[in-house]
Nucleic acid binder design. Sequence first.
DNA 1: TACTTTTTAGCACGAACGTTCGTTTTTGTC
DNA 2: GACAAAAACGAACGTTCGTGCTAAAAAGTA
Lengths: 204, 204
Amino acid sequence: MGKGEETRQAILDEALALASKIGISGLSVGSLAERTGMSKSGLFAHFGSKEEMQIAVIRESQERFADVVVRPALKEPRGLPRLRAMFGNWLGWTQKIKLPGGCLLISAASEFDDQPGPVRDAVAAGQKVWRDTLAHAVGMAVEAGELRPDTDIDQFVFEMVGIVLVCQQNRRLFHDKGSDKRAFEAFDRLVRDRAATGGKRKKE
Amino acid sequence: MGKGEETRQAILDEALALASKIGISGLSVGSLAERTGMSKSGLFAHFGSKEEMQIAVIRESQERFADVVVRPALKEPRGLPRLRAMFGNWLGWTQKIKLPGGCLLISAASEFDDQPGPVRDAVAAGQKVWRDTLAHAVGMAVEAGELRPDTDIDQFVFEMVGIVLVCQQNRRLFHDKGSDKRAFEAFDRLVRDRAATGGKRKKE
DNA sequence: TACTTTTTAGCACGAACGTTCGTTTTTGTC
DNA sequence: GACAAAAACGAACGTTCGTGCTAAAAAGTA
């Protein structure tokens, strides 16, 4: 299918950029139409409702997230290298896809966490999938003997997410260039704290 | 001087509650007027502009934050006890003042981090003051010999903030009751990692 | 080229937005 | 109780919001 999908993509391009600055709920059909040079109704027809438009933005973000964060990391060897790649890719993914603002999946989470509905559901579902992916990666580091067997995997992921959240806040609110360095430092401490003593152990 | 301030306070009460659910930028003069049973213009006159209204909400939040988080913690003895009190009070402060949603200072930070203007400035300034307060508290724990002298204080605060952020996200997005427990666990690990050897010890 | 389907524009709608203004009600002071 | 000041109201402003329609234009297909 040619043209339709093409302009829809162009709309989403612009929508992602705008939403990364002013938030998902700040998106409006009018402003988006103006930016893309379309008519309000023409643009609107691609989604059917504002809510569907917001969900489309979320979905698109999640797809790009999978493209630039998850998939590249899966090419790394299992265990700590892959986990670290996930962490690093996550920290920098919005810059990689050239969003002018911050991570709109994070801000969407805080925008909609108290507003029940399909948008919130989409955000929460995505977050859960990602956390599960992280948990799985941590689990493999445990199996590989890189992390201690008694490692609380969910706790590990919990703290990992926290580091990314504060890094994002630091970067965007204070324009602190050292945020990433601090984040990696925190991550390393997180790993070191659970690092298996002695040699590596392979589960057979 | 009496009546005006009184209703202004009533407006802010309602505004805080509403904003904790839908965010600061979601506040509208109309909806707020309806909730307080006032006319739009009557309510509007108390602030002069929507932006001033938003700032007033931020300020009010910051004052309450100081009341229920900072001041009570200052009554604790310097060092780790006080630091821990700050952390604990922070985690639960929105429940204490009975906000229906989450911490609107946190969500305001992510709402406005890419939108220059006085609102953003107010949020950022408040965050900075709070982080400085935390840093000072950490510094006293170092001076007291509870944390190692080579402790990177800003890094400590950085990670501390991260824990609170992820706790908030966990609680509100996933309704995870165990968030606070995880947060305290992370905090304890943070402290233990820097704990001075031979100093006070927390029972495990 | 002709025809069908998809995509876009134009226009209008009711509602809500932030804001201004003049008027009315309430409040505090003598 | 009189009177000035403060507070609240009601109506209206021009805009923008999301969302319907219908017609025109473009794209895809034969």
